[in-house]
Amino acid sequence: MDMYMLLKLLVYQFTFSSQCPGHRPTYEFPHPLARVSQSAGYWLSYIVVDLLIWWGIRGYINEFRKRKLKLPPIAYFSTYHGSISHLPTGYMWSPHLVPKPIDWGPLVDVVGYCFLNLGSKYEPKEEFLQWIQKGTEPVYIGFGSMPLEDPKNTMGVILEALKVTGQRGIVDQGWGDLGNLMEVPDSVFLLKDCPHDWLFLQCAAVVHHGGAGTTATGLRAGCPTTIVPFFGDQFFWGDRVHQKGLGPAPIPIAKLSVEKLSNAIRFMLEPEVKSRAMELAKLIESEDGVGAAVDAFHRHLPPELPLPTSSSEDIDQPNPLQWFFIQIEKWCCPSC
């Protein structure tokens, strides 16, 4: 048996993803790394994005196969037909936020979120705890590790939006140094290094960049959510949150303004939005993502390790679309 395939069977027999459905094409929504507005292009977006990623990393993979595994190089479509559809896959997000597409089939499970519960042992500083307790629930605003071209201007937008809406705010300084060396009013607290699963329970609503983990934690806490995406799958989660009525349409960081952030805060604080967020939080809390993931893993394990097959049996004949991309790949990277 091909050593690479043996490793896949032993180590990746069940593939888990917590971020986005980038490996499994569907007609229900586009690849999270692709901005496709027409449903006709949803399925094709997975092939195009995956192929672009493959062209970027194929050299490293084939060099590893050649030097370490003593195996011949592989071509994306000719070997794996552009997907991992032959492998069981589990997606670790709530099916109440993104239901499993009907065209994914029995090898795919959407198991629910799997949380680390980092806040269970967190002890906040007394100054922070007193600030939280002396007023109304604040609005959290933070962008984590996302880079900011102009932190001072972004912080100005945040402070003005909080002032206009009359809200208290917790600003996570993050890697973008929001509020660094700035004077802020008493209604705003500058924060660093606090577990989100503890912090978000203290907040009325949250504004963040839309990372998969941050989005999950905010929804679990019952927080209406505004996502300010920078890149990647953040737009995908922003769209999902908006479609569920849990927050306004996502505001790309380049378009963040006092008016848009103020309107977003007002939208999140509407009673019906909070009610929808709390309903979803209860559904998420009732899920057992870890247990469902373990059950799915065991359910899909083969009764015995498959026996080696000849090379002619390993690869089915490609369909016309796969054949087309195989020819493109051969033309673009003949040495790979």
Rank of each mutant, 00 (worst) to 15 (best):
S310N: 01
A296P: 01
Y4P: 07
T226I: 13
Q19L: 10
C194E: 08
L162F: 01
G90Y: 05
M268V: 09
N263W: 02
W237K: 12
E63K: 11
G291I: 06
Q38E: 15
E149V: 02
C223V: 08
Y4C: 14
L116T: 06
E127M: 05
P248V: 10
F236Y: 10
R58P: 02
I57M: 06
L159F: 00
E127H: 07
G238R: 04
H300E: 06
G112C: 08
S257K: 04
G144F: 00
L107Q: 08
I61C: 06
P334L: 01
I227R: 08
S120M: 01
I102L: 06
K282L: 10
G90E: 07
G156N: 07
L283S: 11
D314E: 00
L71T: 14
S39I: 11
P138R: 05
L159D: 03
L148V: 03
M278N: 12
V157S: 07
F325E: 05
A221H: 10
I315V: 12
G156A: 08
E259I: 05
V184L: 02
E28T: 14
F29E: 08
Y46H: 06
G222L: 12
A292D: 09
C336M: 07
P195R: 08
L6R: 15
A204E: 13
G176T: 04
V49N: 02
D172Q: 08
K100T: 11
